[in-house]
Nucleic acid binder design. Sequence first.
DNA 1: CTATCATATCGACATATCTCGATTTATTGT
DNA 2: ACAATAAATCGAGATATGTCGATATGATAG
Lengths: 100, 100
Amino acid sequence: MDFLEINKVLSNKVRIDILQWLKNPEKNFPPQINVPDFRDGVCVCHIQNKTGLSQSTISHYLTLMHKASILIATRHGKWTYYKRNEEEISNYINFLKNNL
Amino acid sequence: MDFLEINKVLSNKVRIDILQWLKNPEKNFPPQINVPDFRDGVCVCHIQNKTGLSQSTISHYLTLMHKASILIATRHGKWTYYKRNEEEISNYINFLKNNL
DNA sequence: CTATCATATCGACATATCTCGATTTATTGT
DNA sequence: ACAATAAATCGAGATATGTCGATATGATAG
C-alpha cells in the first residue's frame, strides 16, 4: 500500500468523483449492456460520459487509480470494467487513522 | 474543511513527514529556546533544519498546510510556531471514512 | 480477413507544483 | 535609529500533472 501514491491520485476532483460514483453503480450509471450486472464494475465509456472529459484522459485516470491499487480492472471482450478495491481503500483509511 | 485542498497538501512526502513529526515534538525536535515548552508547536527553523530544504521552501510548505487548516500558527516575537490542528485532522479522517 | 468498436498509449502543450536564492517585513537588542 | 535575526514573500527555472487529439492495440462481427 503506497500511501503517498494513493494520496496523489486522490488529489484530483474528477478522480474522487469517480471513486465515489463507483460506490453505487446502480444509482450513478445507466444499466450495463454487455454484462448482466455491475459485479465487475462499470465500463470506461460510462465513466467517460459522466465526466465529460476525453476518452484518453479518463483511460489515463483509471490507469492511475488502478496502478495505485484502489481500482480493480476486468476485461470482458472489448470492454474494460473498473470497480473499487475495497480492501485497499480500507487499508488506506486505516493507515491514515493510525499514522497521520 | 476543504477535503481536496487537504489531500493536495498531503500528497507530498516532506509535508507528511512534518505532520507526523509534530505529533511528538519532544521526541522529534531539540528543546525550544525562546519559549518554555511545545504548547504552541515548533518554530520554523527547527522544522527547516530537520528537512534540509531551504528556509523559503519550508515557510511556503507550512503556509500551505496552515491555509488548508491542518496546522495552527502562533507568533511569539520573531518566531512563528506551528502545531497540528487536531480537530481539523480528525474531521478530515472522518470525512474520508464516511465519503471515500 | 477486414471493418468496426472500446480501450490504451503517444506526443504535445498548458497549467501547477517544487525548489531555490534574493528581497522584504516584523521584531528585538544595542 | 540601527544592525541582526526569523519568517514571509517574490521571481524564476525545473519537473510534474491535466488534458487533448491522433494513433495503436485487441476483440468481435460480418
